[in-house]
Structure formats: C-alpha cells, structure tokens
Design a protein around this nucleic acid. Sequence first.
DNA 1: CAGTATCCTCGAGGATACTG
DNA 2: CAGTATCCTCGAGGATACTG
Lengths: 148, 148
Amino acid sequence: MRHDSLADKNCAVARTWSIIGERWTMLILREFFRGEHRFDPIARKLGLGRSVLTDRLRMLVDEGILERRHYDSVPDRLDYHLTNKGEDLYTLLVAVIEWGDKWVVDEPPVTLTHKKCGHQPHLSLHCEHCETELTRRDIHAEFAPDAW
Amino acid sequence: MRHDSLADKNCAVARTWSIIGERWTMLILREFFRGEHRFDPIARKLGLGRSVLTDRLRMLVDEGILERRHYDSVPDRLDYHLTNKGEDLYTLLVAVIEWGDKWVVDEPPVTLTHKKCGHQPHLSLHCEHCETELTRRDIHAEFAPDAW
DNA sequence: CAGTATCCTCGAGGATACTG
DNA sequence: CAGTATCCTCGAGGATACTG
C-alpha cells in the first residue's frame, strides 16, 4: 500500500499522521510556536534542505495550518503564521514535550510555566461530567461502522 | 544534516520525533492501544511491507516502548505488549485523535467514553496550582542554556 | 505464525548555486 | 530574504516467495 492512501482512510489518526507524521513537520511547527515566522531562520536553525522546507511550508499552507502574509512596507519579506487549526496543534506539541521530558531526555531542555503563578501546567485526560482525571483503563473506544 | 542527528539534540521534541515521527510508527502503536498484540493481524490490517513492520517492532522494542513475550504453551506464538513507557504515549494518541476529529474528519470514526458515566473525556492543559484550564497564551516557555 | 530473504523502484531530501 | 533550479545519492519501503 502506498503511504499516500492513509489520507483517504476514515480514521483521525491516519489522516492526521499523513500531515504531521513526517520527519520534519513537527519540528517546523515547533519553530512557529516558539515565535519564529520566517523562512531563513528556520532553514538555518533546523539545518534541513531549503527545498524540503519550501515543500513543507507549501503543504502546511495547503492544509490550512499556516498562512502566508506579505508585508507591503518590506517587499521581500514574507511571514508565515499559524491559523486556528495550526494553533490547535499546541496540545499535541505539549503531549510530545511531556512524554519526551519524562522518557527520553535527562534534564528538561524546556520548562513551561503558567505566566500568572509560575507553576507548571500539565496535560490531563479529564471527564467533564465526573470532574475526575482519567487513565487509559477508564476509557472505552467505540468505532463507527465505516471506521478504518 | 542527516535526520538521524535529531536523536542527539537536547530537545524533547526532536528526540521523541526521531522515534515516532515516521509514517507508520503511530499507526502501529494505535493497533496496540486497540488491543492487538501480534504480527500478522497488524501487517494485514495496515497493509504495510512485512519487512517494515519487522523493523519498526524491533525499533520499538529497542526503545523500550514494546516488549516481546513468548508463550511456552504455544511455541510459534509471540506477543508484543506496551511497556509503561509505551502506555504513556496514550495522551499523545488522544491528542492526535482529538485534533483529527476536530479538523480533518467529518464524523468522528472513534468515540471515546468514560466507562463509568458514558460521557466523553477531553484533554486539557491545566495548572494544578490555580486549578484552571490554560491556553497557549497563558504559558511561558523557558529554555535551558544547552537546549537545542 | 512471525518472521527472513531478495530484489527493485522511486522519491525524499541533501548540497550548492543562482535569482528577483 | 524567500525562495527556485539542478543534480545526485541512498535508503525507505513495496512485492513476493520462502522457512522453522
């Protein structure tokens, strides 16, 4: 099976992974969450081929995750910005950071803090009805008839 | 830069992505979270090359995400199981499902419910100290001196 | 059943120079 | 500065048959 066909499956994981499940995509997105917006700094920082970055940015714009903005005042300058769809990947990024901090790095290279109180935020799986934190064991998965 | 070198960066995202940021890995892991444990069913379901699956399983075992178990009673049968490190990727998987449900599929192919009450669980970024839910704007990121 | 062995293709992506 | 153009390599992964 060609990998491309993942995009056609009726499965949120397969479809999402066909977008972000690639070597560079998540690292490019992280630069945007860090506050970077431009081509050259990202290319230099990540050290990836310029044509690869061109391609990924185009794909992310096509997917509606980034949008391009021209600056009339500075003609050659072009900025990319996260759309709401892109911003919404923040939770996923935090999940990656939390897992990585716990299991694959020694000292956390990045520390997240709540601006107001200085304490650390955490992701939790939470039942709004019961107001309790849940683990995998508390959860049942039900598949639609046409789910992949 | 070779992609392999991501594993050496002092960055939780880069290191985590060097493990799971690959076309098939997350989908293979999803099968385990679904309750699958064996080679052939996964190979058939995902339709990927058998040698690729062999390779990924070996990698996931090396990384301590899966472990192999032999069954003395059934000699040819071999099961793979998620370790604690692997189980802990559940949050990340839910983040993928939630984002995918919201942005890339129409009807959610999978519905998660809290076994006890039947309501749906949600991921939230949460400050334990303030007991409030946070968004990206509420959070400050601080980088260690040697962070990538 | 859980692989291994073999062969093959094609495209991802690195390197570098150039451009409006 | 944000690309495009060009060239090249190499390895990912598909297909298929075989094995203890």
